[in-house]
């Protein structure tokens, strides 16, 4: 006779300790010193390293956005248009280009970027939010035919 239910009554010891530790030590393989080999020290540094990695994933995005902003600002200064004015008026023109795309255009296609700044300047002129913008002369070489 085979007792099939006997297996359920046995004491379950859980997963193998070795493989559980192996999982952590693998993550600590590139650490320096006893942090690499001793489990009780490795588990602490692995947990801290994972915290840093989680933080880094967030900061990486912010740093990239800041870099694109700096690059677009530099390109805007060359063309004598403030960065906020460009971004605001591109949005009002429904030109939905991301900061990454604008920064790439500023580097690789400077003439396309210049056209975008001129469109923004023309939009700012046609629907001026301030009196100062209305008093400035319209940008040269932009034919809008009243469609902006």
């Amino acid at each position: 006779m085979v007792f099939l239910s006997f297996v359920n009554c046995m004491r379950v010891k859980g997963p193998d300790k070795f493989w559980k530790r192996r999982q952590i030590l693998k993550l600590a393989a590139h650490f320096y010193g006893r942090k690499r080999n001793c489990y009780s020290i490795a588990i602490r540094s692995v947990q801290k390293a994972l915290q840093h990695a989680a933080y880094g994933r967030k900061v990486k995005k912010l740093e990239r956005i800041n870099l694109w902003k700096e690059r677009i600002t530099a390109a805007c200064e060359e063309l004598n248009i403030p960065y906020p004015l460009l971004m605001e008026n591109l949005a009002r023109c429904d030109i939905a280009l991301s900061k990454k795309t604008l920064a790439d255009l500023a580097i690789w296609e400077p003439r396309t970027f210049k056209c975008l700044t001129q469109i923004a300047a023309a939009k700012n002129q046609s629907y001026p939010p301030t009196v100062k913008a209305a008093l400035q002369p319209p940008p040269e070489g932009v034919i809008t035919r009243g469609m902006l």
Binding site: L67, E70, R71, I72, A74, A75, E77, E78, A103, A106, I107, P110
Partner: peptide, 8 residues
Amino acid sequence: GKHKPIYH
């Protein structure tokens, strides 16, 4: 070099 679009 922050006045250039290639800045990094």
